[in-house]
């Protein structure tokens, strides 16, 4: 095997524990790629003193100047920031209101399991597995329904593309932004969780607010 240029000298090639002394350091020089770091000249004594006292006092001046203002801290979670109506929070899946089936209280699901939301999702966090509706087991209005519908909210970037992609307005972005949890897997929202009536815990911003 021809020894490559820039490798160690002599027969030490490949041997573990080659000491630095035997390394041909020049061979490792990166050459023209090195750019010297540009530094400003070190400040002189006058400049240092100016910085230490005058600039510090100027900063403190700004701080004390705000003392009389009221605090802007929001006392979360006792107090919640209201959101705009088009705020994109946690998703909701919807049902038709007028088609209760087989004695069930709720109507048919709007989602037909077409996976278009999953295709649109840039974070790839929606997983849909569809199945076929039968007359005995009808879940949605079309031929197919979503047997599994999951959104991994720890990955979601709340872009709202899924809402735009859905041909049946089955999925919309809600207002809920309180999505922390102790376990990552609990942030994978299943179809049941997304269909359930969400807690109305996020205040909506009023007009002009």
């Amino acid at each position: 095997m021809a020894s490559p240029p820039n490798s160690e000298d002599g027969g030490a090639a490949g041997a573990p524990g080659t000491s630095a002394a035997t390394l041909n350091v020049a061979a490792w020089s990166p050459g023209d790629d090195v750019i010297e770091v540009q530094r400003t000249p070190a400040p002189g004594p006058t400049r240092s003193t100016w910085r230490t006292f005058v600039e510090t006092l100027r900063g403190l001046g700004t701080t004390f100047g705000r003392f009389h203002e009221t605090p802007v801290t929001v006392q979360y979670p006792e107090e919640k920031t209201p959101v705009y109506p088009r705020f994109r929070g946690r998703h909701k899946l919807h049902r038709f209101e007028d088609t209760p089936q087989n004695g069930a209280q709720a109507g048919l699901e709007k989602c037909v399991g077409c996976s278009l939301c999953a295709a649109a999702c840039p974070a790839d966090c929606i997983r849909v597995v569809a199945a076929e509706n039968t007359p005995e087991h009808r879940v949605s209005a079309g031929e197919r329904y979503a047997e599994i519908y999951e959104i991994n909210l720890s990955r979601c970037i709340f872009c709202g593309y899924c809402e735009v992609a859905c041909p049946f307005d089955a999925i919309t972005m809600g207002h809920d932004y309180e999505l922390s949890d102790y376990d990552r897997t609990d942030l994978i929202f299943t179809k049941e969780m997304l269909l359930a009536e969400p807690l109305e815990r996020t205040p909506l911003r009023n007009e002009g607010e």
Binding site: G113, C114, S115, A118, A119, V128, V129, A131, E132, R144
Partner: peptide
């Protein structure tokens, strides 16, 4: 195969 998957899945 009906409804088992979409081409992007």
């Amino acid at each position: 195969y009906r409804f088992r998957a979409r081409p992007w899945d």
